[in-house]
């Protein structure tokens, strides 16, 4: 049986990579993908802890996270589409209307 800690280390690594992608990338869509990577890292930690403690609630939480992520993706992509229609760009640097 694989130790739970390996999965936790992988989860931390994925989360950090998601943060890096979110900070480095300029495209709104790719930044949104980076958020999905972070959500998946959290899911991995949930499932790992569910197995370690032998309780099923962790997996149920992951189920809810995945459904909410699907809803969030639908609304977020619609907003990105709207931003593109208004501003003709999806680069985060060029959308600076609130900068003042």
């Amino acid at each position: 049986m694989i130790p739970t800690s390996w999965f936790l280390v992988l989860s931390g690594l994925l989360f950090v990579l998601g943060v890096v992608a979110f900070l480095v990338k300029k495209d709104l869509l790719i930044m949104f993908l980076a958020v999905e990577v972070m959500l998946n890292a959290a899911n991995l930690a949930f499932v790992a802890f569910a197995r370690r403690n032998g309780v099923l609630e962790g997996q149920v939480a992951v189920f809810f996270i995945i459904t909410v992520a699907a809803a969030e993706a639908a609304v977020g992509l619609a907003i990105i589409l709207l931003v593109f229609r208004r501003k003709k760009t999806v680069k985060a640097d060029d959308i600076s209307g609130l900068r003042g």
């Binding site: 999965f7 999905e36 998946n40 899911n43 991995l44 569910a50 197995r51 992951v62």
Partner: peptide, 18 residues
Amino acid sequence: LFGLLDAPFIAVVQVIIY
């Protein structure tokens, strides 16, 4: 990896939905 963690249902949901 979810499959390796004794979570076959979550594994299938991950592949289908995500």
